[in-house]
Design a binder for these strands. Structure first.
Lengths: 350, 350
DNA sequence: CGTTGGCACTCGGTAGAATTGAGTGCCAAC
DNA sequence: GTTGGCACTCAATTCTACCGAGTGCCAACG
């Protein structure tokens, strides 16, 4: 913004005139870099607007009154508020990844192979290394994928294992422990029936379960219900968190570190955090924009990963509100695209 | 030690006389409690030995000379060295868990159900809550368990999924992506052959793979090799880490926190750390006793979990060298026993 | 001889005072 | 509207003094 030689006063979509915008940007950039309050003279020097510190100062009072900047105390420089960061991010020209990092990403995706889970896990590590922030990779739900294979395996007379394979290559296992004992033959038969019953269905489709009262039917009923109960529980979503040690470098204050780690421990929270942000149509959530009280010192960047046009997962980055948005956004963007392409490629490779 | 009315000078297995031992113990206890250097008068007051601070002091110089204690600086109290902690731990009468916590553990194991992985994960959370330290639960390797079921599922013509179920209820999946395309029929046949070939074997046993050159045989060969390659890779060991946020509370110094988290991120390291300690026959590793440079500020407590007398996993706790050994040891002990019993119970429940 | 009280000494931690300096707000002048 | 000048503010730094916990040493004591 205001970087180009904008001649028309065609103000940016928001309500700041060009000069205020430039000043705000300068403050944000500088503060992200130094973590210090930034003063008028620094702004006057850095930005290419040819005005004196005094002028900058008077603009700053306005910016402060309007909530974009704050002063830790009188006689200190200004720091951006969450609103200030928000403006900055909204008006950010999408950055480009550094060459080294671009190379690193390409390298990674050229060589990565193996199970989806492994890829996602490694991706989270990659993303964290790229950015020095903690990364989050949320794996796709397989709610919509069809079942390719179901099998009931007999562990012991009243202890069986239901194993289902989905068309996206994911495997779900669940124990089935009915109150009655079953013979090997019964289990095999149940397995056969389950196979016939469930192949080609999704976890969302309803199936006609047998209502007879023999052991085999009971096994089948229990298996089906166990399998379908799986869905709302985890929705098949896996979370991979990379670089949680970065939290300790990037935040100051033990208490903040503890709180952030504590959230990261709870995978369900992380999933819903990421999903919330995506649902809001955002790619960045700053401070209180996500509903998490204890993450108010954080900014979260997310980028969806799509398969067949459907959102099937996401990558995210978590850092302090003064994180390097340009780089981090670029990294998340690039990685999510590569990931999307990776899965697409995998699907039609055969 | 020295707590009981020991009449004989039957010294403890190590080389400290009773009074030195008492003093050392007092210093350790106090320092664990307060995190401060402890002085001679404090020791004289706390321990039930009826001597003056001066005497304590003169003993302390000896203890320091012998490497059990250290002084942060002149005119400060003493701090235990790793050797001091070691002595303390070696002579620790095994403590008992608090009532509340005992109850909590019993409650937990009475109600816990579900897949092994879930149990282990929840156990790690439990253990961390019990102790306020970060916990580690290492899941059993299934190298020795037999294969109950093998299946090759056709995802697309050159993309298949090998799913194996083991007698311990674990499931392994692995993609098989041969260079050639295979029909559905071929895959089904290969699946059938694999089943016949592998059922009842372990990952360690060698099997006679067909040497013919048709597609099906090739599929079978590739599947078998892929499955057996699984073994050394991960050895089926899963790691669950609970309460990593505790790291931030329990250690001081951002750098330490970062280093510890950084280690915890690398699951393989954690596994080998735990295994190393167990292999040494220890239940506690203090400071440099485990080989990990960056964990020199830590103590690690481990307790094996056995199934059928075989070590099949372990639980662990990670804290600062000045951790509450008695409680933590008791917690690890109790939880590992419960876990052992849990798995035993599960096995013969049917 | 081991134990003890006494005592001088050390040195980190704290509290207060003085100082510095970055940065502001205001204002008069351009 | 912009600017230089200027008085003012206040966190951070430095310095000083001092306190006191704790030590090491020693002479005396049973």
């Amino acid at each position: 913004m205001a970087r180009g030689s904008a001649k028309a006063p065609a103000a940016p979509p928001s309500d700041l005139d060009a000069r205020k915008a430039t000043i705000l940007e300068a403050v944000v950039v500088e503060h992200i870099d130094t973590a210090q309050p930034v003063g008028s003279s620094a702004v006057a020097a850095s930005a290419d607007l040819q005005v004196s510190p005094a002028t900058v100062r008077s603009e700053m009072v306005t910016l402060e009154r309007e909530g974009y900047l704050a002063q830790p105390h009188t006689s200190a420089g200004r720091i951006p508020t969450d609103k200030g960061y928000r403006y900055f991010v909204d008006h950010l020209k999408s950055g480009v990844l550094g060459n080294v990092q671009q190379h690193q990403v390409r390298e990674f995706f050229a060589n990565v192979r193996g199970e989806v889970e492994d890829v996602l896990e490694q991706t989270s590590t990659l993303l964290s290394q790229l950015t020095s922030y903690t990364s989050v990779v949320v794996g796709a739900s397989h709610a919509h994928t069809t079942i390719l294979s179901v099998q009931l395996v007999n562990l012991d007379p009243r202890h069986h294992l239901l194993v289902a394979v989905f068309s996206d290559g994911s495997v779900v296992k669940h124990s089935v422990t009915p109150a009655f004992e079953s013979s090997h033959v019964d289990v095999t038969e149940a397995s056969r029936q389950l196979h016939a019953l469930l192949i080609g269905t999704t976890l969302e489709s309803t199936v006609q379960v047998p209502s007879r009262h023999d052991n085999v039917s009971a096994l089948v009923r229990e298996s089906v219900s166990v399998l379908h109960a799986e869905k709302p529980q985890v929705d098949g979503e896996k979370v991979f968190i990379g670089g949680s040690s970065k939290v300790a470098q990037v935040f100051d204050g033990v208490e903040t570190v503890r709180q952030v780690l504590s959230i990261l421990e709870q995978e369900l929270l992380v999933v819903s955090l990421v999903q919330d942000i995506l649902d809001q149509g955002l790619s960045v959530a700053i401070g209180a924009e996500h509903g998490f009280e204890s993450l108010s010192a954080c900014a979260v960047i997310v980028a969806p990963v799509t398969v067949d046009g459907q959102q099937a997962g996401a990558v995210g980055l978590l850092g302090p509100t003064r994180m390097k948005y340009r780089e981090a956004l670029a990294a998340a963007e690039v990685v999510s695209q590569h990931l999307t392409r990776h899965f697409a490629g995998e699907d039609d490779r055969g």
